[in-house]
Computed example of a mutant assay.
Amino acid sequence: MEVNVKNTNNVISKVYKDSIADELGIEVGDLLISINGEPIHDIIEYRFLLSDEYLEVEIQKQNREVYIYEIEKDYDDDLGIEFTNPIIDKAKSCRNKCVFCFIDQLPKGMRETLYFKDDDSRLSFLQGNFVTLTNMSEEDINNIIKYRISPINISVHTTNPELRKTMIKNKFAGNLYSIMERLAEAQIQMNCQIVLCPGYNDKEELERT
């Protein structure tokens, strides 16, 4: 069977020797389409689906031929592949203008990648990045709970809703506590940080937080 797949974020960049993928003949340059009929949109979804002990893995070869590999494995066995895009998706950027943001304070003329501000729960889980929970849709929050993205690292700064809006410069910043309550009810572990800014979130506000 031959299909035309537009999403190239799932291209395999590495196959580990003697892995399941290697034994099946999956190769660098092949494209992962789905696992058990579910399209793969990001690395969290991939890892979640990978935990099943029976998999039907749909792969498009470089000649556009599509194969479905049936795999029986232990729940914690990995396929042994990596992707050209480590999170299989575009990282979610931060639209905030925090009063303390070091990226906004960088001088001009440096390499472009230094100016990218991420606010992505997947990178929080995978790399330890901190997120504000302000640049997330309802679907993003539901996915944290659905896929058990835990622990998640959260930039709290203050639990005063109006002060948090002022510090982060985002009208949704005051919703922090209600989102954290939902995550706590789902038993998602949260690691929290405070960037302490004199005159903003110190003294009584720090005690409150």
Rank of each mutant, 00 (worst) to 15 (best):
D140F: 07
E139D: 15
H41F: 14
D119T: 10
I40G: 06
T134I: 09
E65W: 10
N96M: 04
E38P: 03
D89Y: 12
I149E: 10
S124M: 04
T84C: 03
S124H: 08
D42Q: 01
G109I: 07
G25V: 08
N143G: 09
I103A: 03
D22G: 05
L32Y: 14
I20R: 04
P107D: 08
V66T: 12
M136Q: 09
I71G: 09
V66P: 07
I81N: 05
I71N: 03
R95T: 05
F100A: 07
H157W: 11
D118W: 04
E138A: 09
K117N: 00
I103K: 11
P107A: 01
K97C: 06
I103H: 02
I141S: 07
R64V: 01
I154Y: 07
I40C: 08
E27M: 13
P86K: 11
F100Y: 14
I144H: 01
Y115A: 03
E58Y: 13
E139M: 14
Y147N: 11
I149M: 11
N153L: 05
D30H: 13
E138Y: 11
T132M: 08
P107W: 03
E65I: 15
P39H: 14
Y46E: 10
D120T: 00
R95V: 08
E27G: 00
E72L: 15
